[in-house]
Design a protein around this nucleic acid. Structure first.
Lengths: 243, 243
DNA sequence: CGGTCCGTTGAGAGTGATCAACGTTAGTGG
DNA sequence: CCACTAACGTTGATCACTCTCAACGGACCG
């Protein structure tokens, strides 16, 4: 299975039929230019997406006009699942870069749930993983200073990009503007700037034009309010999948 | 289906076999006294729970010692699902009152996924609903003042308790201490007190010994940073479930 | 070569944290 | 039933982190 589709097998060895399904998605994918709104809060729900390439934000708009970014999605993520429980979309999906998406209609999804148990379980567990990620982000914002949030965010992004081989000796691309980082961490873009500068001055990170380099993992991890969770591998899935 | 088990049918009409499964849970339930830790972060994962009666918090502990309450669970909620994606439990479940829990082992859960498609889909969608709730809470904490967070929290709790008929003319039980409300909303217990007092002074709410009364829904809703989402009913499920 | 978006920096204001003390309720054992 | 104790709620004073407002520099794009 070619990246980023290999992530579908993270929890489950897939059957040839299931692999075929995923290849079917690959065949019919759509491109979106940078800054496109893929689906807006309140839009009708036409299924979910598999993010083949590019970065996508998921955000909520409050009545005050304040935007809260809830997740930065990277290649291999599945998008739009929370809205399945709602009448209309509950989050805005927005392209941070040029993006390649595979669209999975409600109809295809229902067939998948019926006929592809391994893929279903893998998707189910990956959405639980997203819940864990949300819980962590909540704890960052609810109980940490701006520097601590920033450290946690940078380490998390680093680790997730490293899984796709997008990191070279601590350096990884940063496609968010400082304003967007602020919307993600619940601080002002101005304060994001000061916080980043502080981390640079103290030698923990360096910033390139559209990249970040982590200079001291040790000190950044010491600053971070929590440690990354250990995800269950296939053995746990096997227990859940029966047999 | 007797409350709170009726919530399992929120998304799916259940087959007689599926109803039997749920009744089986009911037969083998456990009691926990107030303040018991049901499962601690890092504990081995022995399945999930159905909350039959009582209130339970789900929380994360940060290295600083700060606790972030991530969710207040009410009767009918399913607990412990996020940890299925992890090697060890990712959240601490703690009884806020005397609690009745039905335990569902990994083995039972795998059988359920295989043989009870309606129940499986209902559970899947309810976990997506939890994601929506987490996203909303994140936006409250990330982008609102303490008074706004408090308004959103009180309205949300009111609405969820109203679904179980636990609300009488705006009055509902409040089983959290002010310290716990603080851990939920990301503010100090001292500031929780001041915020509640302010809301009382301005006539929006009144506080009883272990209860809250909402006096002006209109003004509290105007203060709240967002509006409650509209959850999809059975029609949407039918589309997803196939047939 | 303009314009817009993004990043950067300064000064001042405000919300909420911290520290400290006291009142009140509830639970416990005599 | 009362005394005692601990947990919870309440209030004041001070401090710090972060927001707001404002201005300017630089980079990318048309």
């Amino acid at each position: 299975m070619q990246p980023p589709f290999h992530r579908l097998e993270e929890y489950a060895r897939l059957s040839p039929f299931e692999l075929g399904l995923a290849e079917g998605w690959d065949g019919s994918c759509q491109f979106f230019p940078k800054r496109t709104v893929i689906r807006r809060e309140g839009d009708p729900i036409d299924g979910v997406f598999f993010l083949k390439d590019g970065w996508v934000t998921s955000s909520l708009l409050m009545r005050s006009g304040q935007k809260q970014i809830v997740k930065v999605h990277l290649p291999g993520d599945m998008l739009g699942f929370p809205s399945l429980a709602l009448e209309t979309a509950g989050e805005t999906l927005e392209a941070l870069s040029e993006v390649t998406l595979c669209h999975i209609s409600n109809h295809d999804l229902s067939q998948l749930f019926e006929a592809a148990p391994g893929l279903s379980l893998g998707i189910f567990l990956s959405t639980q993983k997203e819940r864990i990620a949300l819980m962590r982000q909540l704890s960052w914002i609810g109980g940490s200073s701006s520097a601590e949030r920033m450290a946690a965010f940078l380490l998390d992004l680093h680790d997730r990009l490293a899984l796709s081989g997008k990191v070279a000796s601590g350096t990884f691309p940063m496609l968010l503007t400082q304003e967007q980082v602020g919307e993600l961490l619940g601080i002002t873009s101005i304060h994001v700037n000061r916080t980043i500068k502080d981390l640079c001055r103290s030698g923990m990170i360096e910033q390139g034009s559209r990249s970040i380099t982590i200079k001291s993992f040790e000190r950044l991890r010491a600053l971070s309010p929590d440690e990354p969770p250990t995800y269950a591998g296939e053995p746990r899935w096997r227990r859940l999948g029966g047999k």
